[in-house]
Design a protein around this nucleic acid. Structure first.
Lengths: 335, 335
DNA sequence: CTGAAAGCGCTTACAG
DNA sequence: CTGAAAGCGCTTACAG
């Protein structure tokens, strides 16, 4: 900032009042067109820039939205949340808003500290992007500001949340495999690990149920240990014809395992993933998977938070964002 | 925002003036310790939050720094700049600053429009992250605000720039190959394509020069066409013992090509890359490469922009951030 | 059509 | 140690 030129300066050079300048620059009623033009010209010549802080103080609106991401999701390979943040910024722009990133340090999360964007009244609303601890959810609830959970939800907090439809995505994907003639379908993922792995598993299960197929324990393959570290995937003795992997990276691991054991995708077995990240197109053959609709997710987030900032008290509850299946070459049609 | 509780409210509940409240909350001289404590207690009970907009208007400082990324670098797979932005945010936090992302749309870049963060005086300084067009550089120069180029530079603009040391990284990497006994070393990359490919090539060349080796045309292998689309890499008739790839993704492509032709890495030929991105660890054997020091890059950026905001007119010129070689398993020691 | 006054929330400089 | 006054840049409500 250190913006030297003010409306008063423009007013002085033209011998008018700063009220008139204010009206002219914001195209309000009550200034003759000729004067308006003159004022705009001088503003331009002087290199005048609007000082949004004055507006903020008058209206009590900062025209910023905070996006808070817990530190633990900001590792070197976690580009997903940053992509979401980027899309949120883009959509906020249409409302004349900016997005301010505030990474929630592990320390602040443990000590239940408010984020600085809140303490300093830097934002009109906050998007909490990524699961925070139970106790911290209570801290969030204490914040007197419109807020929204993104990519996770909490059963108790009556805070709106927006999440990818993991359940339905996996359900559709499994339905697709069934349409392609597969009947022996395995699920790859530690179903006790994260809620997204769980929800995707349940979608897979629903598809089986609807088609009268039994859920077989031997076809639920573990992919990681309790700490989330990937383990060697153990293939069942009698091989299924298809695998639903809980994410693309695990599909990548599975490919390696299958190749090592002499199986070819998709001729010997079909594989599908979830996320549509780098791994999906890196694989050979490329992976059929579900793409998370980041743009729609961001658009919905911005729409909701804007409504709340505008004063709406409407509850949207838990809103699901559908994904899109991306059909590639990892599934073979049987019989 | 819509922050209802102000210092005046605290003052009223205690029957003191807001001046005293201001002093107490910011731990200034001139308030008795007992009153200070009382004021802080009431502030807490009332859920008071500091209104930074008032400070902004008084001081003319927004305590925000803008990070402007040209739209074309914000594609779905361009996570690098978002990582840089994230690190910048983190370092700004230590100065009580926030980073505001402002994606420069292609349209605004073409029409030479100022970014909104500038027009609305939302920031005290701007980091331009990623090469903008020549004409837009002139627009940037017109902005009356501390500014910095990040990850590119311009020969004319006397604006400080911070870039990765591509030249030195490739130089060191090639030196390493030479120490490992290699004498026939190819460079993979279209040396007319981008300045980073060019600079890395020159580092490779310098290493050859220093070791009295000739630069052979047949050992400069093209990796992409004029539009930057990857092409099939043509291997020379007489194979070199090592390849310096201009980036990890190209190393990935090269591995595929080598495998297809029956060569094994590193037994038949050694390969090194640049960037240390996903591709590096995805490969088997994992790739020896140069890691860009994003954190140091961000730290330096923040240090410089803070100095400028504080009023320093020191010119730092073009500052190079050294990378670190990550030694993995793609290089074999020769006889 | 034009502008003087008041106020948004805070801080600084000064007076008591 | 405490506080009244003025001001940061703008806008709103009102008067002329």
């Amino acid at each position: 900032m250190k913006n030297n030129i003010t409306m008063k300066d423009i007013a002085n050079t033209l011998g008018v009042s700063s009220v008139t300048v204010s009206k002219a620059l914001s195209d309000k009623e009550g200034v003759s067109d000729s004067l308006k033009l003159k004022i705009k010209k001088v503003a331009d010549e002087l290199g005048y820039r609007y000082n949004s802080a004055a507006k903020t103080i008058k209206e009590g609106l900062s025209y910023n939205v905070g996006v808070m991401i817990p530190q633990r999701f900001t590792g070197i390979n976690d580009s997903f949340y940053m992509r979401v943040y980027q899309q949120i910024s883009l959509h906020l722009d249409r409302f004349g808003y900016f997005g301010i990133l505030n990474i929630l340090s592990n320390e602040d999360e443990e000590q239940l500290n408010f984020p600085r964007i809140y303490n300093e009244s830097k934002v009109d609303g906050i998007v909490i992007l990524g699961q925070v601890s139970k106790p911290y959810i209570e801290t969030v609830q204490k914040m007197k500001l419109p807020k929204l959970f993104l990519d996770f939800y909490d059963e108790h907090a009556e805070i709106d949340s927006i999440v990818t439809d993991n359940f339905y995505g996996a359900y559709e994907l499994t339905n697709y495999l069934l349409r392609m003639g597969h009947r022996e379908i395995a699920y790859v993922g530690n179903i006790y690990s994260t809620s997204s792995i769980q929800d995707r598993f349940l979608g897979y299960y629903k598809s089986l149920l609807e088609h009268g197929l039994a859920l077989e324990d031997r076809l639920i393959l573990n992919d990681r240990d309790e700490r989330g570290v990937f383990i060697n995937i153990e293939l069942p003795d009698k091989m299924p014809t298809a695998f639903v992997c809980n994410c693309d990276q695990v599909a990548y691991n599975l490919y390696e395992r299958l190749t090592a054991d002499g199986y070819h995708v998709p001729d010997d077995c079909s594989v599908v993933g979830f996320d549509n990240d780098v791994y999906a197109t890196l694989l050979n053959p490329q992976l059929t998977t579900v793409e998370v609709d980041v743009s729609l997710m961001a658009e919905t987030t911005v729409k909701f938070i804007m409504e709340k900032i505008a004063g709406s008290s409407r509850q949207n509850g838990r809103v699901l964002i559908p994904g899109n299946i991306i059909y590639r070459d990892s599934v073979k049609k049987l019989g």
